[in-house]
Design a protein around this nucleic acid. Structure first.
Lengths: 136, 136
DNA sequence: CTGTATCCCCTATGATACTG
DNA sequence: CAGTATCATAGGGGATACAG
């Protein structure tokens, strides 16, 4: 194990322990991670990592998201500083969403996991099938 | 941008598009990612990445998890092939959980994001505060 | 010690309709 | 076009008690 991995494990120990006794639920690391783990978050980030998109374009890119969740997820991403929202005073108005530097930084880390899932999802699905068949 | 990043982006395009028209919700990549995104999943994985643990030890490591969710999350992790469950016929019985090779492989990728959150959560919390103050 | 079985609640999400 | 408002619902998750 190299030094970097050891360092990472030490920090993740902190993540697990939370922010202190009695405030585990308020651990800021958990809070940040959970917001990234939202149902539509990684999907929208992967779109915006490619290039900026307008509201309606995102809706077409992710056809099964409801308008409400698109609005809400984008607002949360903006609130956390991952996404920049720019309104163009055209008529009718158009709004463009793009990743901030913070968002790009975060997505670079998230991307490792998405990439893993793309490469190994078949293995996981097989494991599930085997488990379900065995226990019955 | 190097070739590896370009390759990743291309695959994430597939992730976004899902498994095909009309079956977006059944996209296996989404399904695998969502299960990893469970509330307690990353926490338990980070514990088991360190060393195998028994049920009660995990409960003490993550004091605010309910017994029910601990059982359920561990079973899901086992079902997906990330965790191995070994029962020792002692009296009373003891059960040890450990990462499989697949689990270690997956956690290596997840770790990048957890590490990022550990290093940047303060920035995100500040961004939230600024957003909340600005809009009122 | 390691779970199961219930009951319950609340939040995340969807569907639909309306607005600047 | 880009949202908001409202209503409805499923299921994730907690608390508690029981069991092998």
């Amino acid at each position: 194990m190299d030094a970097r991995v050891a360092s990472t494990r030490q920090k993740i120990e902190i993540y697990r322990a939370g922010a202190g006794q009695g405030r585990l639920a308020n651990c800021p690391i958990r809070s940040v991670v959970q917001s990234i783990f939202g149902k539509w978050t990684s999907l929208l980030l992967s779109a915006l990592a490619e290039k900026p998109y307008r509201f309606g374009e995102l809706r077409r890119l992710v056809p099964d998201i409801s308008q409400r969740m698109l609005t809400e997820t984008l607002r949360d991403l903006q609130r956390d500083g991952y996404v920049h929202r720019e309104v163009f005073p055209t008529k009718p108005p158009s709004v463009e969403y793009s990743l901030t530097d913070l968002g790009r930084s975060m997505f670079d880390s998230l991307q490792h996991l998405l990439h893993w899932a793309e490469n190994h999802h078949a293995t996981v699905v097989e494991a599930r099938a085997r488990f379900d068949a065995t226990d019955a």
